[in-house]
Structure formats: C-alpha cells, structure tokens
Design a protein around this nucleic acid. Structure first.
Length: 393
DNA sequence: AATTTGACCAACCGCTGGGTT
DNA sequence: AAACCCAGCGGTTGGTCAAAT
C-alpha cells in the first residue's frame, strides 16, 4: 500500500483538493498544458503527485466537462453500451461527451446497478416473465423500450411511423447479444416464416455474441416488444465499409482485377458484425457468387479505412455501428440483402418445427431504425473498391 | 437533538501496456 | 532483452451530507 514512485521522494498532500490548489493547477495547465504529468506539481507549485494532478484535471477541472446529474438519455446510452462493453468505463465514457469514466462508473455503481438488481429480484418473483429490459426502468427513454410485458409487436403502421417507410423495416438489425442481455424473442404461434430457435442459435454462433445481422421484414412480426413514443435521437452513423470477398473460400478472393477479399470473411463463419450482401454481378466465375461483405468492425476495435484519392482516411467507431443498431442501404441493395438473407438461411440446418419456449430462446437485442437514414452506396464499379481495413488495435 | 444509515462521489491504489533508454 | 518511466484504466476506499430513526 505504498505511494507511487513519483510521490515517495517528496512530501505530497493527499485527500480533497482545496480551491487554491485547483486554481494553481488550472492556471498552470491553461498556460503551459500538462506536458509530463510528473513534472506538473513542481512547476505548478503544488505539493501533490503528478498522478493526483492528472486525475484532478481529467475528472474535475477540465473545462469541457459536463457537470450535473445524468439525463435519461445518457442513462439509457450507458445501459446499452454496458450491455455490449461491460465494465469498460473509459470506452463507455467516450460516447458521453463531457462525462468521465469515473463519473460513468460511479453512476453505474450507485444508481443503475441497483435498479437492475431490483428488476432481477422482481423477476425472481415472476418466474414466467422474462426479465424486463433495463431500459424499461427509464420510462422516458428515447431508445428502444421493452415493457415489463415482453410482448412486442411491430405492426406495419408502427413500423411506418418509426422508420419512415416500410422499406426500412427490412433493415432491422438484430445484434446477437451476450447471455445476460435482456430482450427475449417469443413465438406467438402465428403463421408465416419466422426465426426458429435453431436459426437464432445459428446466428448467434456464426456471428458471435457481438455480431449483427440484417433481418427481413417477414421475420419481424414474431418479435414482441413495444416502442417508446417519443422522438428517436440516434447517434450519427459512420459510413459502411465495403469488401469484396468470396465467403466460400478460406483464402481472400481475387477477382483478377486486383480486388482482394477481406480476411473478415471465411467460409460461412462471418466475423462478428459483418453484414452479408450477395454480389450477383460476378456469378459466372464461381459456383457460388462472390459476396460483398459490408464490414462492420468488431466491437472494441477501431478500424481505419485508408485514404483514397478522393477521400481522407476514415476512422470508424464500431460502437456507432452497433450502438445505434441500424444501417440503411439504398435500394436496390435492400433486395440483395433480402436475397442474401434467404441464401444464408438456406445454408443452415432445417429448423425445428416445434415452437421454442421463451426460456429456450437466445437473447437478442433489437434496435429501432434510424429515422434519418444515412445512405451508403456500394461502389458502383470496381475502380472504387476501398483498400483493406486496417485494424488499429 | 443526537445518532445511525445509506447514497454519492472524489480520490487513491495497483495493475497494465506502450514507449524509451 | 531488460529496466524504467509514464499514462491510462478499473476497482476500491473513505469523506461528506442528507434522510431516517
């Protein structure tokens, strides 16, 4: 339990910071910047260790900090991000402008965690009810709201009002979530195609706990939940990155025109986050058509799209892909998505005919569509093919 | 009015990973 | 390659304050 090496040599003050100390630190950093933190206390005339100065600045004195309690929207975002990222507070805080990791962590431990425990305790008394989505404990939530009653019916009128057009309904992205995630899919026994338990398992195993996949509209009516009536305020979406790959080959596919496939696809084990789209323009060369993978970067990785002659390098934050949960594609790509979904499903073993019980179903996170779609076109010709992704992490 | 309890949160501690020597 | 330094991160602690008893 010793002090840091930077603090051991000299007498350093500990505990709460006085206003005078704050002022010294603010004056110094706003004039000179912090530079090397270990030299800050001496130069600023403070009897603190550099680490303490750094923490004080980052967590309290920084001018861009947002003070005050968390909004409902921030709380919702934290819950959503935590369900994906776990206790990676710094990663979570990056998505909350003006909030620090410490603040988010404290808020989680003091407020949200308790509500979640309460909701699970409630669930133990209602064995037949799936646990409520944590977002449901914030009734004013702007994001997807799943009520205590897990029944969620997305009818066409509702989809119309939420998504702007029925066409976009087809682009619901279901992100297979970790075991503890909250939304349960349930069969209502109605007719029509739906995702079976087995298919969902397949999705889950193929795309991993953090994967994403695009569903057709005809899969949707068997999902039950309810949406909050308020306005949706989605995050800004990044551009989608395209890759030409042949998913049936282990090796990157070379179309003979210098376009190489991505390592993100191998066989049918698409990497988590990949959205598969058939490219029917190249059927003749192969038994199976090569496939364009719109590569959604894996969570927790930063991905860079190298610069081209017409565009600068682009850094993509994968959380903005999945946290927002939806990507829109221009028609006729939607048709390709539908076709490809059918194709992918046809590669999977036949589903069980019996309806799974809710407890047998994998848990899935379902995100509403962005009402202000960001369209990203496929490259219209081969010459615009982007360079391979570079994983920064 | 005094004491206890619990919530909140600023600050600390140890660890890790990256960079430099 | 090893040692060292530093920044950053997540877990934990302890002080403060308000509500409850």
């Amino acid at each position: 339990m010793g002090h840091h090496s930077c603090c051991s040599k000299q007498k350093v003050k500990r505990g709460l910071w006085s206003p005078e100390e704050d002022e010294k630190l603010i004056n110094y950093i706003s004039t000179y910047g912090h530079g090397c933190w270990s030299s800050v206390p001496k130069l600023a005339g403070l009897q603190r260790c550099g680490k303490s100065c750094r923490l004080r600045w980052i967590n309290y004195l920084r001018p861009d900090l947002k003070r005050g309690s968390f909004s409902q929207q921030e709380a919702s975002l934290i819950i959503e991000l935590h369900s994906i990222l776990g206790n990676r507070w710094a990663q979570i805080a990056k998505h909350l402008p003006g909030r620090t990791d410490n603040e988010v962590k404290n808020f989680w431990n003091s407020s949200i965690k308790k509500r979640l425990l309460l909701s699970h305790a409630h669930d133990r008394h209602h064995q037949h009810m799936p646990p409520p989505h944590p977002l449901s404990i914030f009734p004013q939530d702007h994001l997807l709201h799943v009520s205590q009653n897990p029944n969620f019916y997305l009818d066409e009128a509702r989809a119309e009002s939420l998504f702007g057009s029925l066409n976009l309904q087809t682009n619901l992205i279901v992100a297979a979530a970790a075991q503890h995630d909250q939304v349960t899919l349930q069969s209502d026994g109605s007719s029509g195609p739906m995702l079976s338990n087995l298919e969902l398992d397949q999705l889950h195993s193929n795309f991993g706990p953090l994967g994403a996949f695009t569903l057709n509209s005809h899969q949707v009516p068997n999902l039950y939940a309810s949406f909050y009536d308020g306005p949706l305020e989605p995050l800004q979406l990044p551009s989608v990155v395209h890759h030409q790959v042949d998913v049936f080959k282990q090796e990157p596919h070379d179309r003979g025109d210098g376009i190489h496939g991505s390592q993100h696809a191998r066989g049918t084990n698409i990497e988590p986050g990949s959205v598969v789209v058939n490219d029917y323009g190249d059927k003749s060369d192969h038994i199976y058509p090569p496939t364009t993978v719109l590569t959604m970067p894996k969570l927790c990785d930063e991905m860079a799209v190298p610069a081209t002659s017409s565009a600068p390098q682009e850094i993509i934050d994968p959380l903005l892909c999945l946290g927002n949960g939806i990507i829109h594609y221009q028609d006729p790509l939607n048709m390709q998505l539908r076709n490809d979904y059918n194709w992918l499903m046809s590669t999977m073993p036949p589903s069980s005919s019996s309806s799974p019980t809710p407890s047998q179903l994998p848990n899935i996170l379902l995100y509403p569509a962005n009402p202000s779609p960001v369209f990203t076109d496929l490259p219209d010709s081969d010459q615009h093919q982007p360079a391979p992704l570079v994983n920064l992490k």
